[in-house]
Simulated assay, not measured.
Amino acid sequence: MRRSLPWISGIALVAVAGVVTLAIPSDDSLTDPILIRGSTDDELASRTLRIAVQDSTFADEVAVPASDWSAEGNWLVITVEASAPHTETGAAINLATLTVDGRVFQASERPSDSLLHTPLHVGTALVGSLAFELPADLRHGTAELRLSPTTPTPLLDDVIVITLPLDDLPATSQVDLIAPEWATP
């Protein structure tokens, strides 16, 4: 028994070291964003954003009637209601991404009437659209809409993550993007 005691102690120490190694967070986790998850039925609030998805639709063309701009393609247009929960400092959707099957797409900055980069206010919500140009065959599966006031990569900041089932979304030939406007109570 005396001869096996050092071996048993050594094996126990190796096992404990393995458990401790697994329990220690990675270096990336010290700066990762704080994800606030929800679905399209939820109103989500982070440090600087309050978001509710109102509508989502696929379109073969998006247009901005006020500027005669339009573009054809496979577009996903997401209409959201957004406001600032506590302070207007830094309150804007500056980063809007859509992740589908590991591929990340950023909201297009081409339409002038996008909610992207629009300053948000406390107590009064704006309704506006985010348009994502996607590959032609991408209209199925589940997507994650990520919204943040920080670009390019949020470090130690809140990121709103909304799960969006693409299979059930309607499709239309054209969507006219409207300028962000005050939400009706």
Rank of each mutant, 00 (worst) to 15 (best):
R146A: 12
G10L: 09
G73F: 01
F132T: 00
E144A: 14
G73D: 05
Q174Y: 11
R2Y: 09
Q54A: 07
S26Q: 12
V53Q: 08
T172Q: 13
A17R: 04
V16T: 14
E181P: 03
L120D: 00
S148D: 04
S46P: 02
Q106T: 12
T142S: 14
G102R: 05
R37N: 13
L49W: 01
V104L: 08
D68T: 11
G10R: 05
L145S: 02
D42I: 01
T40W: 00
S129F: 04
T21G: 15
S112H: 09
A23H: 09
L169N: 01
I93M: 06
T151F: 11
A17T: 14
I78W: 00
V100P: 00
P65E: 09
P185C: 13
E133D: 15
A107L: 03
G90I: 01
A84M: 01
V100R: 00
V104F: 02
N74R: 10
A125S: 14
L120N: 00
E181L: 14
F132P: 00
H121M: 15
S46R: 04
G18T: 05
D41I: 07
A96V: 02
R37D: 12
L30C: 06
A136H: 11
L98P: 00
D32E: 11
W75K: 01
H117P: 02
D60N: 14
W7F: 12
R3W: 09
I51A: 01
L98H: 00
L5F: 09
T153R: 12
G141K: 07
W7C: 10
V127G: 01
T142K: 13
L145K: 00
P25K: 02
P25H: 06
V161D: 05
E72F: 08
E72W: 06
L145V: 06
A15Q: 07
A63R: 10
E43M: 15
S26T: 15
S39E: 10
T150G: 05
V62T: 03
R110N: 10
E43T: 15
L13W: 11
D113L: 10
E72A: 15
D41Q: 11
S56K: 01
A17H: 03
G38S: 05
E43K: 13
E43N: 08
S148V: 07
L5T: 12
H117C: 11
R37G: 05
S67P: 03
S56D: 05
G102P: 02
H117D: 14
E133H: 09
D32H: 12
P135R: 04
R139F: 09
H86K: 15
R139C: 07
L164D: 00
F105A: 03
A136M: 14
P119E: 07
V20W: 13
G141F: 05
V100G: 00
A96T: 01
V122H: 06
A17K: 03
L138H: 06
L164C: 03
Q54E: 11
L115K: 00
I93L: 09
L116R: 03
S129W: 07
P152F: 07
R103A: 14
R50F: 07
E72N: 12
E61K: 15
D27Q: 14
D101R: 13
S173D: 13
V104K: 06
L13T: 10
L5C: 06
D42A: 08
V175R: 04
H140E: 13
W182G: 15
I36E: 01
E88P: 04
T184C: 07
G10C: 06
D68H: 11
